[in-house]
């Protein structure tokens, strides 16, 4: 039983993953809702965690695993307005998930029921990793870099040093390189604007498929900033933090992507 103040937030989260994965289970316990799923080619993994404080009201008195088809849940979420409140409920036996949308002024109520699936999902253990470089930058900037370089090549090498982070690609038509300096570059509406904030233990340079990175940038509407976690010989983690309507951190959406290697 979970009440979310703005249905649009859940829609944004589902829209950011529905093209990457077909089906997934929502694992619910008293602390929140967790999802983990790999794409069909087993190159990337998406996880999200929606903490209890993302919801106006939240209760879950026993652990549940709800099998969801992503296209179907996206269709239902599209039926609500983004500033509707949304109440999610399961019944007993647990074979449906019900969605009750209520308009902000309370003049419209709509209810939809999603048939749940029996999914036998493999669960992967994601090891705690000490990343060599953690790069924080504006989502819009990361999205632009990926889209720009994808017009030239199909993979992008991210190289992080103490002073800057560079993104480069090579294709048939030529090459492209974008470099962001470490540090604050100015102020906009009293908020610091970073080129990139870099925490570094050791310089790293890794290559990744731009097709997947572009999928990940669909999460850009969830947060101002994206955090890239890189380490030698480990998958890239691209993290978007999720905030509730009180601007408190209330979960995350994380994508993991295996690197490309030269033979």
């Amino acid at each position: 039983n979970a009440l979310i103040k703005q249905a649009g937030l859940l829609k944004k989260i589902i829209d950011a993953i529905k093209d990457l994965i077909d089906e997934a289970t929502l694992d619910c316990d008293n602390d929140g809702i967790y999802l983990q799923a790999m794409d069909s080619s087993h190159v990337s993994l998406v996880t999200f965690y929606l903490k209890k404080n993302l919801f106006e009201k939240y209760s879950c008195n026993r652990n549940l695993s709800l099998g969801i088809n992503m296209t179907s849940i996206a269709k239902i979420l599209k039926c609500g307005m983004s500033d509707d409140t949304l109440l999610l409920e399961t019944n007993n036996p647990i074979d449906i998930l019900s969605f009750k949308f209520e308009s902000r002024r309370g003049h419209k109520l709509s209810q939809f029921q999603l048939r749940l699936m029996n999914l036998e999902m493999e669960r992967l253990s994601i090891p705690d990793t000490e990343y060599s470089c953690i790069i924080e930058m504006m989502c819009s900037e990361f999205s632009k870099v990926c889209h720009d370089l994808a017009t030239i090549g199909d993979s992008m090498t991210i190289t992080c040093t103490k002073k800057n982070v560079t993104f480069d690609t090579t294709g048939d038509l030529g090459t492209g390189i974008v470099s962001l300096k470490q540090g604050v570059v100015g102020s906009e509406n009293d908020e610091n604007v970073y080129a990139a904030s870099i925490k570094i233990v050791k310089p790293v340079s890794l290559s990744f498929s731009l097709r997947y990175l572009i999928y990940f940038t669909k999460a850009s509407s969830l947060s101002n900033k994206v955090i890239l976690h890189m380490g030698e010989e480990v998958p890239l983690m691209v993290e978007y933090k999720i905030f509730n309507t009180y601007e408190e951190e209330a979960g995350y959406l994380r994508y993991f992507l295996a690197p490309k290697v030269n033979e």
């Binding site: 790999m38 993994l45 992967l124 253990s125 993991f256 295996a258």
Partner: peptide, 14 residues
């Protein structure tokens, strides 16, 4: 360019 590594080689099935 480059060979795509699969994620399974990093994360183990529990």
């Amino acid at each position: 360019t480059g060979t795509q590594v699969r994620l399974d080689s990093f994360f183990k099935v529990t």
